[in-house]
């Protein structure tokens, strides 16, 4: 147990055990899977048409936004070239589906249906449509476990989108609460501020929304302000998640940090 907790020596063992247990997971997932299938199957034509129209409209909207984004990205690259700094190359995503199996209720873990065989690796960031969900913690060949950002042993480096103040958001064990650590009493942070990943530590890519500040409590007797935030991702409702993979390590980061350096947000 100590070995498992302190080092990663037992990862292969877990990988094998996980493979052996995959059928159990599939069986447990089966009832909800079939009910989903049935619901899809017996949808009326009208419902499908409506859904299709709605999705088409949404798609158009996103396309329009994406056009603007392309232009902005090119501009960004140009500006960065002027500043002579490295530009982080694009990321590719893998879509995985949640398996509805219950895990240990005292840790915030999720089971997804993609594993090592699909290229999932330990520490890979996991997002949903609204924000960062967590990172891959345990990998099996056909499935993996994701540790949510609200798990008490998880911390994620963030910055305030408005002014770039950096902090670390620590999980509380409560599904809709994060704590920001080490923010001085006089720092410029307000309720409603958007927190995005800062990219420090090199595990989470920069700029993804994480949470929104809920409350800032300042106690003059304490050195730091007590800041709580609400995660943006639907941590308990999402069906599908995105696994982000960095295509190319940015030049600077690769030069600065030796590989294998334990990063700030290591899961445990």
């Amino acid at each position: 147990m100590t070995v498992d907790h302190r080092q990663d020596l037992l990862e292969p063992v877990r990988y094998t055990l996980s493979a052996a247990l995959y059928p159990v997971r599939v069986l447990a997932n089966l009832p909800s899977e079939t009910s989903d299938f049935m619901v899809d199957r017996f949808k009326t034509r009208r419902e499908l048409r409506e859904e299709n129209a709605r999705l088409r409209a949404q798609h158009l909207l996103y396309e329009a936004r994406l056009q603007k984004l392309d232009a902005l990205e090119v501009e960004n690259i140009r500006l960065r070239e002027l500043l002579d700094s490295a530009y982080e190359v694009g990321e590719s995503v893998l879509i995985a589906e949640l398996m509805r199996v219950d895990l240990d209720p005292y840790t915030h873990l999720l089971q997804i249906d993609k594993g090592g065989e699909a290229g999932v690796y330990r520490g890979q960031p996991v997002l949903d449509a609204h924000g960062v969900m967590g990172q891959v913690d345990k990998v099996g060949p056909f499935s993996a476990m994701v540790r949510l950002i609200t798990d008490p042993s998880h911390a994620i480096p963030v910055q305030v989108n408005r002014n770039g103040i950096r902090s670390v958001a620590i999980g509380t064990g409560n599904l809709n609460l994060l704590e920001l650590s080490s923010l001085p009493n006089n720092s410029d942070i307000r309720a409603g501020d958007l927190l995005v990943t800062s990219g420090l530590g090199g595990r989470f890519p920069k700029g993804y929304p994480v949470a929104r500040v809920k409350k800032v409590e300042i106690d003059p007797g304490q050195p730091f302000a007590e800041v709580t935030a609400t995660p943006l991702a639907n941590l308990n409702r999402s069906q599908q998640v995105l696994l982000v993979r960095r295509d190319e390590t940015p030049r600077q980061a690769a030069a600065d940090a030796p590989p294998g350096e334990p990063s700030a947000e290591a899961a445990e």
């Binding site: 147990m1 498992d4 877990r14 055990l17 159990v24 895990l103 240990d104 840790t107």
Partner: peptide, 17 residues
């Protein structure tokens, strides 16, 4: 217990012990 640990994601060996 070991398999149970792998299944529910607890520390490997906790349930086993």
């Amino acid at each position: 217990g070991l398999f149970q640990d792998a299944l529910v994601g607890t520390l490997l060996g906790a349930h086993a012990l």
